[in-house]
Design a protein around this nucleic acid. Structure first.
Length: 580
RNA sequence: GGGCACGUAGCUCAGUCCGGAAAGAGCAUCGGACUUCUAAUCCGAUGGCCGUGGGUUCAAAUCCCACCGUGCCCGCCA
């Protein structure tokens, strides 16, 4: 409804300006601050004051007077208020919002008939997922959900780097060292067992004597060469390591939850010849140069050349990624990638090169986030420094469980939570808190990991919003059967109820904004604001004890609040508990 | 050295893209509200030269320039 209202307001302002022979290039539509009755406003009078030769309040009043609300469904009136033209919503707006918002699919925008491939995480399959890279699956999955809400047809991809030196080292180490020489794994899970070989191998390369290292390097080089030559046996050796490690990582990421539709392997683009094909076309480019036995691109906007073929004739990560992206463009309308800020330069070079190859890079969008660091520095799989995501999630669940048990004694609601409920709530709240904490911040801001902060369940966190959902469910449970179809929204005249309905009405616009700008955190901000508005309503407006007509309207409003909270949380991937 | 990102209350952050109605939350501190639809809640108080200095504008946390601080990047690594 909000989106329709906004369209009507834009139309009304443009019409009025045209009638007054004023320019319509900037309508100045904005949302008024709290405490103003209007839902939308225009500040256009400021800009027109000089042209008209009258002070802004006079101009605003004239524009308001020119607007006839009659033909509009959702505008009740346009009123001049100081220098602003304020728009009051109609009964119809409130009634339609109340009805639409109770539907399970509230917040889903119409299908756009546009396919989007969203690549996120793509962490090298070298070991357990640590907190340093945890922002990627959380932001990526939330963005995928938001895009789906916005009507896009989304596929989630994990690009598997299975052709790099690290993986060759890993494969060599796995085949070389014996398990009896390794420490016990931190967890009984494949990636924790496997990473021991990786770390052992890297240690060996750093500390063994020169001859031994040289021999090892020869074996590693042979693996890389085998991949480049398309040797089937080498692929299988590497795949055993990669698939095993990846299976464990996938399971950890799945706890967030974040799932993938496809794991796209880098080697795919070596085996199908597309990397060779890209290389041929890159050589034809005007900026292609052959220097020091290597093929490079002298990209106009970059200081250094981009090497795309090594002196030994092998391809590089970026070369394969070019083939990967051409494949994406072939199969999808748009491609979005969530990347660490350390990949910014590489991503810009990729984009420029794709442009030179004749692709429309408007369809490629990148979202960057900064790494989560420890107070003492970055996290590293190879060095084994860092906090494992599994440990963080386990600790979050443990603490959430302790909270629930703590509150059991003086719990007011008499609904007999059993052991299964306890497990469920601990998991929903614990994981929700971790996820919400990350998804609610702008990804470009730096985060330093601290246990206490990451596990803070106080207000402005997931449990605060989840609690509102549980409260709604509680009220609806007790309300029994209420005919919410023929409810008169004018029964919601209490200001807290009206404010809640207006906040609910914004949800589709929030989804639209988050999807267009690729900023899922605005949805998190919205859930908090919605929860606050609900809590004010909850305090001031009794639902079950109200007179019949008010009761029905308020039950409908709580129903609308429940679906809105549930769907807004769903859009950022946080569970909505039915009881807490 | 160059490029990019970030800098808002003691702490953690919204708001910045697209300039407009007294700068908003939470935590912390202090003071209130549970015989009431769930107190993981609510109400109130305290706390801000929006990094600094210029500029543009009727209007700047928001746009432009310079500077300072922090992080990331500048491999024939990924």
């Amino acid at each position: 409804m909000f989106l329709s209202l906004r369209a009507e307001v834009e139309d009304a302002v443009a019409e009025a300006l045209t009638a007054l022979s004023l320019p319509t290039d900037d309508l100045g539509i904005e949302q008024p601050p709290d405490g103003v009755d209007a839902v939308l406003a225009s500040s256009v009078a400021f800009r027109l004051a000089e042209e008209v030769g009258a002070p802004p309040p006079k101009v605003a009043a004239d524009i308001a007077a020119e607007i006839d609300a009659e033909p509009y469904d959702y505008i009740d009136a346009a009123v001049g208020q100081g220098p602003y033209v304020n728009f009051l919503p109609s009964e119809q707006y409130l009634a339609d919002t109340l009805e639409t918002a109770q539907a399970d699919d509230y917040g889903h925008l119409p299908d756009r008939d546009t396919s989007v491939v969203l690549e996120h995480t793509s962490a090298n399959p070298t070991g357990p997922v640590h907190v340093g890279r945890a922002r990627n699956p959380i932001v990526g999955d939330a963005l995928a959900r938001v895009l789906e809400y916005a009507g896009y047809d989304v596929e989630r991809h994990y690009y598997v780097n299975d052709a790099g030196r690290q993986i060759a080292v890993f494969t060599w180490a796995y085949e070389t060292f014996d398990e009896s020489d390794l420490p016990d794994p931190d967890r009984d899970s494949p990636e924790y067992e496997m990473v021991r070989y990786y770390r052992k191998g890297n240690d060996y390369l750093e500390s063994a004597d020169d001859d031994a290292v040289e021999a090892a390097e020869a074996e590693i080089a042979a693996i890389l060469q085998g991949l480049e030559d398309g040797d089937e046996e080498t692929y299988e050796r590497v795949a055993e390591v990669v698939d095993t490690v990846l299976s464990g990582m996938t399971e950890t990421i799945g706890r967030l939850p974040a799932e993938f539709d496809e794991f796209v392997k880098e080697t795919q683009f070596m085996r199908d010849g597309s990397t060779d094909d890209v290389v041929q076309r890159l050589k034809e480019l005007d900026c292609a140069v052959y220097e020091e036995d290597a093929w490079q691109l002298d990209l106009p906007d970059f200081e250094k050349n981009l090497v795309f073929l090594r002196a030994d004739g092998t391809s590089l990560y970026t070369t394969r990624d070019l083939a990967h992206h051409e494949w994406k463009f072939e199969h999808f309308d748009r491609a979005v990638t969530v990347l660490g800020e350390d990949h910014k330069l590489q991503a810009d070079q990729l984009s420029s090169t794709l442009e030179l190859l004749g692709h429309d890079t408007d369809q490629l969008e990148q979202v960057f986030y900064s790494w989560v660091n420890l107070p003492e520095g970055g996290m590293s799989t190879r060095e084994g420094t860092g906090v494992d995501l599994d440990d963080l999630l386990d600790e979050a669940i443990d603490r959430a469980r302790a909270e629930v048990e703590d509150r059991m004694a003086d719990r007011l609601r008499d609904d007999d939570l059993d052991e299964d409920d306890l497990d469920r709530i601990a998991r929903q709240v614990g994981i929700g808190a971790v996820r919400y904490d990350i998804v609610s911040k702008q990804p470009t801001k730096g985060i330093t990991f601290e246990w206490e902060r990451a596990l803070d369940f106080e207000a402005q966190s997931a449990p605060y919003v989840q609690y509102v959902h549980a409260r709604c469910c509680g009220i609806l449970d007790d309300a029994g059967d209420v005919d919410t179809d023929a409810v008169d929204p004018s029964a919601l005249e209490a200001s807290e109820a009206a404010a809640l309905l207006r906040e609910i009405a914004r949800f589709p616009a929030v989804i639209e904004e988050a999807a267009e700008d690729h900023r899922p955190h605005v949805v998190a901000t919205y859930t908090r604001s919605l929860a606050e508005t609900f809590n004010s309503f909850y305090r001031e407006c009794p639902v079950l004890d109200a007179d019949k007509e008010t009761r029905a309207a308020r039950v409908a409003l709580v129903g609308a609040a429940r679906t809105t909270v549930a769907n807004a949380l769903d859009a950022i991937g946080v569970d909505a508990p039915t009881s807490m």
